[in-house]
Every structure is written in C-alpha cells, then in structure tokens.
Design a protein around this nucleic acid. Structure first.
Lengths: 249, 249
DNA sequence: TAGTGGTCTAGACCACTGC
DNA sequence: CAGTGGTCTAGACCACTAA
C-alpha cells in the first residue's frame, strides 16, 4: 500500500477493492476475501477493514451477509428502462419496458384485498381516512432478481370490487375498466422522491439501509379532478433510470 | 441508555440524537455537543460516538466541519417544488416554482463560454466529440442555500454565439430565441437518475459523499429530431420532489 | 465447531479550526 | 494554544452461519 497520509488507509482499501471489482477480479455474486484475510493482506486491523467494507456497502457495490461474507452485487441490469407518458395516457408498463431491453420480467400479484385507506392514500385519493379501498400489491422481478415493488389503491366506490384489479390486467386494462365504469381517466400526475428504504423494502430488494430507493407515486384523475387510482412504485435508485417525454405546443 | 443488546450502542445514540433534532432540542444550524462530551454523556468511547455521528452524516441530518463540530442541517426547504411539463413545452422554471412556495431564489450565471463537446454531450446532441458548443453554467440558491447546479449545452452552429444564453433568459426565453433562429422546439425528453455526487457537486451543495443527488437531463428537439439543447440539473435528492403531469387524450 | 462479520474499548496520534 | 473531529491499534467479545 502506498503511504498516502492525507487519505485514510481504510478509504484506500475501499478504493483498491472498488477497482478490483470493476476490473472483474471479483465477479458479481462472488465473495470478497474475509476481513481477517484482508487485514493481513493490507497490514491493517480487522476494525479498519470493516470500515472499508462498510463504505462499499453504502455504495451498494457489495452486499454483506452476517456470518457468511461480502458478496459482490450483481450489475444493475434494469438501468435505462423507461417510463414514458404516452398519448394513450398510461405510463409504459413494466413488462413492455423490460422486454425492450431483452429481459424476462414477471410481476406476480402478492395481495389483492379491501382495506381502510391509510392517511397518505386517503389524501391522494381525496377520501376520508379509513374509507375502503381496493389494494393491489405486486412484486416485480427480472429473472430471479427483485427489482421493484408496486402498491395500487382504488376507492372501493369507484372500483366496485376487487375484480377490477385482477391479474393479467395491465395498466391500460385497468384504465379501460375504470372508463367502462364511468370514470374515464383524463389526467395523470407522477411525483418522484428519493428516500431510504423501509426494512421490508430493503429485504425484498436486497438493499442495505444505506442505499436509496426512488418512490414514484402516480395519481390518475377522472373528470372533475376525481382521483380514481394511485400507484406507488418503489425501485432501487441505482438500478433504474426514469424517462419522461412530451411535445411542445 | 437502555441496554438493548441486539441494537448497537452507536445506533442507539444516533437514534437518540435523531429524535432530539426532530424535537427541536438542536435547531437547524446549531452545533451538536462535541464528541468527547457525548462520549461522557452516554458512557461510551469517542470512537463509538464518531460512528453514531457518521450515521447522521450519511442521512444528511448533520454536516460536519473538521475542527469545528457537527451542524444540524437546515430543513429541506425546497421539497415539494415541482417540475411540470406544460402545454407551452417548457418545464416550469426554477424561479417560478421556488417563488410559489414563498422563497427567494437566485440563479447566478457562473460561466458562459464555447467549449468542445464532452463525449456525453456530443452523444445527446448528435454531434461529433469536440464539436463546439455553447456552455452555460448556473448555481442555484434559495436564500443563502445552494440547492441546484445546472449546465446547459447548445451546438454552436445552432446557437450562433454565446449571446443566446445570456442572463435573465428564462428557459422559455431561450426556446423562443431558438425558434427565432429557425429551430422551434417540438419535443422534450427528460431522464432522471440517482447517483453519488462528484466532489465538486458535494462541496457546492454541502453534501457528504454518502448522500445522493438526482441528475435530471433534458434534451430539447427541434424538427427532424435535431437536438437543439441539453440541460443537466443536479439536485440533492433529499431536498427535492419532482413532479410530472400529463393528460390522457 | 470453526469461520465469518459486527461492535466496543482504552488509548494514541493526527489534522483542522479559531483564538 | 486548546478544542474539535478523523483515524488506527490490539485485543476482546458477541452474533450469525455452515458443516
């Protein structure tokens, strides 16, 4: 190791490991050498090596399993997938966009039920808290890899029942059904925010709590600004790039 | 301190400080007690206190100045400001949106020159690398607080000269001038990505490198898919919420 | 059980800031 | 200069995982 006093030793170790990962010395999915081993190699204490690994964790380059070791994270394959507001009013669907980049997506339904509206959802849909809403939860994968969480809420009064959100109903399918029920969608608003994942999200998406997620909240409005649906998508920020397109005039 | 073995002591200290900050015991801009002092208070080593502070740094709750202390970060005042693609084709301007929430923005020009196009810019604008482009750089503040960086590039052939991007030219002003020069804008694409800040960005935006920024890249297209301008905005992810709106048709 | 990562100490030294 | 935060050690103990 170069003695470069102004830069902390543990940072230098992190730099070195980062470089070696980038160069393919430790391919995705493999284990880094153990902390005692790295300590010997670099002539440092295990405590210092631990700090170095903590840096790589925070950057999302490495995922640590206690008692096992530090795994090199898979390459962010989902990046560059797009969300595009289109003239038919829907954002492009998850499946479409992932297929475009040649990957096999699946988005199993993990829950479909009727629940009292949580405060945030009630606010977005213009309901009173605890008014009944249809809730649809999906886990989205690319191959074996979890890449996104989605929870959709529709006021029960508008939905009529759970059936409206049954599987194989793509977004446009859902909006067509809402139209059939007398709530044709006129306007969409999406808000994007970056935040720390909840524990549940971190576990499913295999993130450390030092990494961030993007939360994309869409609200679909029917006539008279009646909010007919809201969807919240949670995606690891390092794996996605969002895209919006619109025309002048 | 509660002896809660499964949770690390330093995490408990961070929890405690986080709570006290939230409750206003340490208002924004003030210093936390020094590390030795906190060490005495919690019966821990300075090393452990240092780790606790490091957590708060990573979360952006605190900004540390070496040799001085840990300052409580100002409240993220810019949050909820919107970017809305409007019917006139422009995103709403920085100044407009900040004023809407009752704050005083200013966005001084820090650079206006003609440079060879960097690779990424050349790709976005459909130029060859090193083709000349007009570059406009702005630093954006709300009051005294730096909140955003913006760099705009226009092919010199389209711009004619630097004048096109002179100060007090709002976005729509620039696009009107481009129209006058025979390049009316037809279409916009924005791509959003979360990443770690560069050192320069971290310094200006007063971020630690553990925090994230949103990079919003917009490309404005004239007829025949000729890219007439690209702007890159860099904003601290914790201080902003982006918003897009569009109508079904 | 042996090997892994996570935490903590007591003490040291350094770099930086402000007086 | 004194006070601040940043780093590092040598050693210890714990929790977790896998065989």
């Amino acid at each position: 190791m170069i003695v470069e006093t102004p830069r902390a030793r543990y940072r230098q170790v992190a730099d070195e490991l980062r470089k070696e990962i980038r160069l393919g010395k430790y391919p995705a999915g493999t284990l880094l050498p153990s902390q005692p081993e790295l300590a010997r190699k670099y002539g440092l204490n295990q405590t210092s090596i631990n700090r170095a690994i903590a840096l790589l964790r925070a950057e999302g380059l490495v995922r640590v399993e206690h008692g096992v070791g530090a795994f090199v994270q898979e390459i962010p394959t989902v990046k560059r997938v797009r969300r595009i507001p289109r003239s038919d009013g829907s954002g492009s669907s998850f499946a479409e966009e992932v297929q475009k980049v040649g990957l096999k997506p699946h988005a199993p339904l993990v829950g479909l039920d009727i629940v009292p509206a949580p405060a945030m959802v009630a606010e977005r849909l213009g309901l009173a808290e605890n008014d009944p809403v249809v809730r649809r939860r999906r886990h989205m994968f690319v191959g074996e890899r979890p890449v996104q969480l989605a929870i959709s809420y529709i006021p029960l009064e508008i939905a009529g029942g759970e059936e409206i959100a049954l599987p194989d109903t793509g977004p446009s399918g859902l909006y067509r059904r809402l139209g059939d029920r007398g709530y044709p969608i006129e306007r969409f608003v999406e808000e994007i925010e970056a935040r720390h994942p909840t524990e549940e999200e971190a576990e499913f998406l295999r993130l450390t709590d030092a990494q961030h997620v993007l939360e994309v909240v869409r609200i679909a409005y029917a006539a008279n600004n009646v909010a007919a649906e809201t969807v919240t998508n949670v995606l690891p920020s390092q794996q996605w790039r969002l895209s919006y397109e619109w025309t002048a005039s």
